[in-house]
């Protein structure tokens, strides 16, 4: 199966690979996995406590090219967004941007789950009341 140019670009030059200090209260960590293929993805955000803007986002993904590209793109998109705006990102947006084929849609779902899990973790640390949606995704 052929990957789109955008997937190949993110795969060869992944943005924002790395990690943030898990113990910091400003950092939220999401670790998610896709049991269907065994991929694991960790996405972390550092949120400005004043503005609730995601100032830094890092990821590390062990999986196929589409999973790496989806998480790379996700970190690019959430950087500079407020927490609530970041929650608006849907996996279908990622599918469209990367032209993912149907068999790789679950990679984009994984990236969306990772965003929600990271934000959920940050909210929990900071005692922010969670929306029902975010709670469900954080588990």
């Amino acid at each position: 199966m052929a990957y789109s140019d955008k997937v190949i670009d993110h795969y060869n030059n992944p943005r924002n690979v790395g990690q943030l200090d898990k113990a910091s209260t400003e950092v939220g960590t999401g670790l998610v996995g896709a049991p269907e293929c065994g991929d694991v993805m960790r996405l972390q955000i550092r949120v400005n406590p004043e503005t609730q803007v995601i100032e830094e986002a890092k990821f590390k993904t062990f999986g196929c090219g589409s999973a790496i590209a989806s998480s790379s793109l996700a970190t690019e998109w959430i950087k500079g967004k407020t927490v609530s705006d970041a929650l608006e990102i849907k996996n279908t947006d990622i599918v469209k941007e990367l032209s993912l084929p149907p068999v790789k849609i679950h990679c984009s779902v994984l990236a969306e789950d990772a965003i929600r899990a990271a934000i959920g973790d940050w909210k929990k640390k900071n005692g922010v009341a969670e929306t029902a949606d975010a709670t469900a995704a954080a588990h």
Binding site: A34, E36, C37, N91, V103, I105, H106, S108, V109, L110
Partner: peptide, 8 residues
């Protein structure tokens, strides 16, 4: 519901 077609 198992396998890639049900992923996500």
């Amino acid at each position: 519901e198992i396998g890639e077609e049900f992923a996500g």
